[in-house]
Design a protein around this nucleic acid. Structure first.
Length: 423
RNA sequence: AGAGGAGUGGCAGAGUGGUCGAUUGCGGCGGUCUUGAAAACCGUUGUACCGCGAGGUACCGGGGGUUCGAAUCCCUCCUCCUCUGCCA
């Protein structure tokens, strides 16, 4: 969440940022934050003073008791009841104010980076670059949902039977392709200096709040209600939360983690024309990269991650483009996001396969993720993450783009992992 | 899952109602000594909030309670250890 200090010191800038996101009533909300914070401080001062008085009386009584002056001690005791009830009142007031403040702050999205374009929807995103050429296929080309049937590599009906729509069963060479991609992505990340982790795929409430899935987006996560746990929508949640309530040493930067996990998304109400086949699922596989860095370095790290992801797409020989998301299309917690989209030649559409974001201190503030610098001061770190990569749409575009009359050609880099070069 | 035990500062480990944010040791940082280093000695060493500052407040697993006063007593939750049970 946003820092109150930032709102106070850079009011105009924050306001502009929220407006870029088309956040309604931004100015009123920001004023309310400042007002509540002011009230919070006043209440704290008042409460602390009374508490100090109460503490000193308690000490006095302690001394009197020790020196055996019980009657005097009893006399003083009567003075405390009034202070005590007042402290209680102020304490409650303080807690209420703080809670109200937190509630408003939770509703405020991150302030976009200055380079983020204005805009309302995906149509306003800025195309940063395009790479690769779009393959020309025969007129009888098939979309991937036909291809998977033709070659019997992914079975949606079977998934429906055992779980429901959006839970495909990968079979034979389809399953092998999944495993190959996961291994390829993990190996590449390790070469790039990321430390692999295998986190839990169920997380508690604190973790949900830490990375910003809660309180807003409960509906997007599957819940194990009996144990108050959530199935992760992305490995970002467990991996970033490893660093919740942590004070790092500046020397430990940059922290680079990679993890493969299944991801679960309820995607309630979002089924429609463009979500056939692998385009949108309730369960899918993803390899995620996370970086925790010094605030001065976070935009370099973002560019780093962006070119790393592009490198993967190049190795997979997929045509792609990079978008800088506009204010209206950006995720709630992000300051700057690049989306990578691959071209799926039979659907004749661009498909998002990665989203790389810098959250600056937005997540770190919730996570209490700090570091101690050379000057011995603790300050918030910057967090970043990106998909590297999400599998289903990669699979969709590999299948569609590489289809031939003799079968589907596999990208060269995957052949050692697959043990075959054609499906 | 049942019975018992335990959770204290970076780590180890005292403290069972009063002046304890907390003895001590190790580690870390600074210094003295030394050509340099080690050893020894001296000092220093948590986080957050409020305050220009002096200083104040809170935190001894989390939350709640008793008390003038809680690390210490009570309730509850979490975690870990031991034994029993179950299980990949």
């Amino acid at each position: 969440m946003l820092l109150v200090n930032t709102i106070r010191e850079n009011f105009e800038q924050v306001l502009e940022g929220l407006q870029k996101r088309n956040f309604p009533h931004a100015e009123a909300a920001l004023h309310q934050v400042l007002e509540l914070d002011k009230k919070r401080k006043e209440t704290q001062t008042e409460r602390d003073n009374l508490q100090a008085e109460s503490n000193s009386i308690a000490k006095e009584i302690g001394m009197l008791m020790k020196s055996g002056k019980k009657e005097e001690a009893e006399k003083i005791k009567s003075r405390t009841s009034e202070i005590k009830s007042q402290v209680k009142l102020l304490e409650d007031a303080y807690n209420n104010i703080e809670e109200d403040l937190k509630q408003i702050l939770y509703t405020l999205p991150n302030v976009p980076h200055y380079s983020v374009p204005k805009g309302k929807s995906a149509d306003d995103n800025e195309i940063v670059l395009e790479h690769g050429s779009i393959p020309e296929l025969h007129a009888d080309k098939l979309p991937h949902w036909e291809l998977i049937k033709k070659y019997d590599i992914i079975d949606f009906d079977l998934g429906v039977k055992i779980a429901g729509a959006g839970f495909p069963v990968y079979k034979g060479r389809g399953a092998r392709l999944q495993r190959a991609l996961i291994n390829f992505f993990l190996d590449e990340a390790m070469k790039a200096g990321y430390i692999e982790v295998q986190p839990p795929i169920l997380v508690n409430e604190d973790s949900g709040y830490g990375t910003g899935q809660l309180p807003d987006k409960e509906g997007q996560m599957y819940e194990a209600t009996a144990d108050k746990l959530y199935l992760i929508p992305t490995a970002e949640v467990p991996i970033t939360n490893m660093y919740r309530d942590v004070i790092l040493n500046e020397a430990e930067f940059p922290i680079k983690n990679v993890g493969y996990t299944p991801c679960f998304r309820r995607e309630a109400g979002s089924w429609g024309a463009h979500v056939r086949g692998l385009n949108r699922l309730h369960q899918f596989d993803k390899v995620e990269i996370v970086q925790i860095v010094h605030p001065d370095r976070s935009y370099d790290a973002l560019e780093d991650m962006s070119s790393y992801v592009q490198g993967l797409l190049q190795k997979l020989e997929l045509p792609y483009r990079v978008l800088r998301l506009c204010g209206g299309d950006m995720g709630f917690t992000s300051a700057l996001t690049y989306d990578m989209e691959v071209y799926s030649a039979a659907q004749e559409r661009w498909l998002e396969v990665s989203s790389v974001s810098n959250f600056e201190t937005y997540q770190a503030n919730r996570l209490k993720l700090r570091f101690k610098g050379e000057d011995k001061k603790t300050q918030l770190a910057h967090t970043l993450n990106g998909s590297a990569l999400a599998l289903p749409r990669i699979v969709a575009s590999i299948l569609e783009n590489n289809q031939t009359e003799d079968g589907i050609k596999m990208p060269k880099v995957l052949v050692p992992y697959l043990g075959f070069d054609m499906i």
